[in-house]
């Protein structure tokens, strides 16, 4: 497509579901598609940037003990020191090294973010998948319930759960999961419902394949691509929600996390800018990484509808 065209093809505006797909089960996970997948990924600017940043973050998280100058909760020096040679990002109000907290924070952020996104996919996938496949009353009830969860704002819902159940590290994961699963449910539902009536699924059904097999062999592999895109975007959302809870002072007080650092920074905005700037940058970087990765994956799976966030990638 030309870069200078004055207009957008209507096809580009069509939702993913309308994108023409062959009538035989294309199943991305089948066969040797890895090579092709990688080739397309390489061609996507957003995707590659996202991937590289993400791998970098994961490396930092895994190698934290090796690269971090101090232990996360170690009192490394005087409190509220501005960035210097010995403390590259300064120290916080109790004298912890900000750089070390930021490095260790990547562990918590990624772990909890990915865990919540994964759990949300599990719950949402189950609800959405069953609703889309079963149809009828089950469909109506499940999707209505999903809608109900979305009426309460995501952040408020997460807070409500924390208020009722407490804020232990992994209750926080549950809170975030409860807040974001409806997003996955809706996308899985849409995919499964659209695929259910496709020819290759009907062929399998007429041939007498059991439901479980149809779901596992025909529907899931084809429903996966848009779901993967959504999960990538929602992993960023999970990290954001997680950090937000931390910022409100509701995180685990003993875990060295970005949110907790930002919470502490709130009281020192007039004196210690470094307490806010560095962990905030880390959060933004993580979210951007996931969102660019999502864009890249979208370009791979829906080449008809390439609209990257980095400019018009047409």
């Amino acid at each position: 497509m030309s870069l200078s065209g004055d207009s957008v093809d209507t096809a580009e505006l069509a939702p993913d579901l309308d994108a023409p797909r062959p009538n035989t089960s294309p199943g991305w996970s089948r066969g040797n598609a890895t090579h092709e997948w990688w080739a397309r990924m390489r061609a996507s600017r957003s995707g590659m940037i996202g991937l590289v940043v993400l791998i970098l973050l994961i490396a930092i998280a895994m190698l934290a003990p090796l690269i971090s100058p101090y232990a996360p909760n170690e009192l490394a020096g005087e409190s509220l020191q501005a960035p210097s040679r010995s403390h590259l990002m300064g120290t916080d109000n109790v004298g912890r090294d900000v750089l070390s907290v930021v490095i260790y924070g990547a562990r918590i952020a990624l772990l909890m973010g990915l865990l919540s996104a994964g759990l949300a996919l599990l719950v949402g996938g189950l609800v959405g998948g069953v609703a889309g496949y079963a149809g009828g009353a089950i469909e109506t009830i499940l999707m209505r319930v999903t809608e109900l969860f979305q009426i309460i704002p995501l952040m408020v819902l997460a807070l409500f759960v924390v208020a009722l159940w407490g804020s232990h590290l992994w209750l926080l994961v549950v809170a975030v999961t409860i807040a974001i699963w409806p997003l996955e449910a809706r996308i899985v539902y849409g995919q499964v419902k659209a695929l259910k009536d496709r020819e290759f699924v009907q062929v399998a059904r007429v041939a007498g394949a059991p439901h479980a097999q149809i779901l596992a062999r025909e529907i899931l592999p084809n429903a996966l691509p848009p779901v993967i895109v959504q999960v990538s975007l929602d992993a960023g959302l999970a990290i954001l929600t997680q950090t937000s809870l931390g910022f409100l002072g509701l995180g685990d007080p003993n875990a060295a996390s970005w949110g907790q650092l930002l919470y502490a920074a709130q009281s020192y905005l007039s004196t210690a800018w470094w307490m806010s700037v560095f962990p905030g940058l880390a959060v933004a970087l993580a979210i951007i990484a996931f969102s660019l990765l999502g864009d890249g994956l979208n370009e791979i799976y829906n080449p008809h509808q390439r609209r990257g966030t980095l400019g018009r990638s047409r």
Binding site: L240, L262, Q266, W273, V277, G280, V283, G311
Partner: peptide
Amino acid sequence: DTLMQTGVVTAYAIPSFWLGQLLVM
């Protein structure tokens, strides 16, 4: 167009409370 699009992406990635802190500082 490109500038604004980039702005939109950036805005989505920055946590609101952090932007608030930056504005305050």
